[in-house]
């Protein structure tokens, strides 16, 4: 079981790190969150039933539940995180090869993500991860129509902010 888990974890490691980066600011917090997600995944793994849910759905649920809970605990608030950006966000992503154009886009991406409260942030992350509306609905626990409506609202909000 351990080897199976390690293989799956290795396969999805980048997703965990990306998700951790979407919910935390400092590199240390990001690492702590990734670690907490890994621990919860390992704890829940014996109960994972492939007939009930796809591995990715199961993993996103755990990772996002842990991330949102930790985010709320750390910020002590449910309102959007409004602190000014601290360091360059890319330090958190630990790039070895600077890419000015990519850096700028990632900075903008992080600034946008941080404007949303945790559940909408989860929705954005899942959308960016190219998950289908059906899977997003299953992960969050809302209807597909609701997912479509929310994503459309988020797009609208972003457009308004860009004006």
């Amino acid at each position: 079981m351990k080897h199976q888990f390690e293989a799956l974890l290795h396969e999805h490691r980048k997703m965990i790190l990306k998700l951790a980066a979407a919910f935390t600011r400092r590199p240390q917090d990001r690492q702590d969150l990734a670690q907490e997600i890994t621990i919860q995944l390992w704890r829940a793994f014996p109960r994972f039933d492939p007939e009930r849910a796809r591995f990715s759905t199961w993993m996103y649920r755990i990772a996002l539940n842990v991330a949102i809970s930790q985010f709320r605990r750390d910020t002590g608030s449910v309102a959007g995180h409004t602190e000014a950006l601290e360091e360059h966000h890319l330090n958190r992503i630990a790039s070895q090869q600077p890419d000015p154009e990519g850096d700028e886009r990632l900075c903008a991406l992080w600034e946008l993500i941080e404007k949303f409260e945790p559940l909408n942030r989860a929705l954005i992350v899942l959308y960016l991860e190219d998950r289908s509306y059906a899977e997003i609905a299953e992960i969050i626990g809302i209807s597909q129509t609701n997912v479509a409506t929310k994503i459309s609202r988020i797009k609208q909000t972003l457009r308004q902010q860009m004006k």
Partner: peptide, 11 residues
């Protein structure tokens, strides 16, 4: 708490 449950339920 079953973290593998839907987000809304757990939150």
């Amino acid at each position: 708490v079953d973290y593998s449950a839907p987000l809304l339920e757990i939150q």
